[in-house]
Computed example of a mutant assay.
Amino acid sequence: MLMNRLTSEEIFKWCSIPWQSLEGCEGKKIKLAVRKDRAEMMAEIGNLMADEVRDHNAKGLPTKWVLPAGPCDEYDTFVRRVNEERIDCKNLWVFHMDEFLDWQCRPYPVADTYESLEGTMLACFYNRIDEELRPPEDHRIWPRINNLDYPDEMCDKLGGIDTVWAGIGATGLVAFDEEPRDYWYRPTVEEYADSKTRIVDINSDTMVAMAERSFGTCLDRIPPKGLTIGFHVICSAKRAVYMVATGDWKKTVCRIMLFSEPTTEYPVTILPKYVPDVTLYTDEYTIDHPMSHDTRGW
Rank of each mutant, 00 (worst) to 15 (best):
P180A: 05
P71D: 07
D288A: 09
V174C: 10
A111W: 03
E10D: 12
G159C: 07
P180C: 10
D283Y: 12
L117Y: 10
D156V: 04
K36R: 15
E265W: 08
K31N: 15
D162L: 06
D162I: 06
K31G: 12
D248V: 11
L158N: 07
D88Y: 03
V82Y: 02
M41L: 15
K251I: 06
V79Y: 07
V110A: 15
Y192S: 02
P109L: 06
E26Y: 11
M49R: 05
V53H: 09
N57G: 04
C235T: 15
Y285D: 14
D156E: 15
R81F: 01
L2G: 02
W249E: 12
E118H: 05
E153Q: 14
I145M: 06
R221N: 09
A245K: 00
L22D: 07
A50R: 07
E153Y: 00
R81Y: 05
P272C: 04
A209H: 12
K250R: 05
R106N: 09
T120V: 13
V241L: 13
Y185P: 00
E9S: 15
K250G: 12
S116E: 08
Y183D: 02
M42F: 14
P224T: 14
W14M: 03
P135N: 11
E84T: 08
P272D: 01
G27V: 04
D220F: 08
T217I: 09
H289L: 07
A50D: 05
N57H: 02
E115T: 02
P62A: 06
S16Q: 02
A240T: 15
S16C: 09
S260C: 11
I161V: 15
S236M: 01
V53Q: 08
D112W: 08
A43C: 03
K157Q: 08
P267V: 06
R5C: 00
F78Q: 00
